[in-house]
Amino acid sequence: MKKLILILLMVIFSITSVFAKIKIGALLAISGPASHIGKPAEIIIKTLTENFNKKNNLNEQIELVIYDTKSQPKIAIQFAKKLINKDKVDVIIGPNTTGSALAIIPFVQKAKIPTMTLVGGTSVVEPVKKYVFKSPQKTSTAIKKIKEYLLKHNITRIGVIADSGGFGQDGIKSLKKNANGLEIIGIEKFHKSDANMTSQLAKLLKKKPQAILAWTVGSAGAKIAKNLRQLDKEVLLIQSHGLADYYYIKLAGNFAENSILPATKFIVASQLPDSDPQKKILIDFNNQFGKLIENSSVHSVYAYDGFNLIIEAFKKSKEKNIPLVDALESIKNYVGVTGVYNLSNKDHCGLDESSMVIIKVKDGKFILIV
Rank of each mutant, 00 (worst) to 15 (best):
V337E: 05
K207D: 09
A111M: 09
Q271D: 15
S219R: 04
Q230K: 13
D245Y: 10
G168W: 01
K82Y: 00
I224V: 15
L324I: 15
T97F: 05
L261M: 13
R229I: 15
G253Q: 06
G120H: 12
K346I: 05
I43P: 05
P262T: 08
L151T: 00
D347S: 08
E183L: 08
N286P: 01
A195V: 02
F366T: 11
H36A: 12
A256P: 10
I155F: 10
F266L: 15
V89T: 01
I161G: 08
G165K: 05
W215P: 04
S174D: 14
K147M: 13
G336L: 08
L58P: 01
K176Q: 07
I77F: 01
V361N: 10
M1N: 12
D284K: 14
K21V: 04
G32R: 11
D276L: 14
K110N: 10
H36V: 08
L204M: 09
Y341Q: 12
T156E: 15
S174C: 10
L261Q: 04
E257L: 03
A103V: 02
S17R: 05
A142D: 07
K173E: 07
G25C: 05
Q72P: 00
P277W: 04
I37C: 05
S174W: 06
F13R: 00
D284T: 13
T47E: 11
I367Q: 14
K360V: 11
G306A: 07
K2F: 14
T139C: 04
K88E: 09
I5E: 13
F190G: 02
N51E: 15
L282M: 09
K55D: 13
V337A: 06
H299V: 00
M356G: 11
K360M: 15
L9Q: 03
A303F: 11
V337D: 09
L6S: 14
V11H: 08
T156I: 13
K144T: 06
L151W: 01
D87V: 12
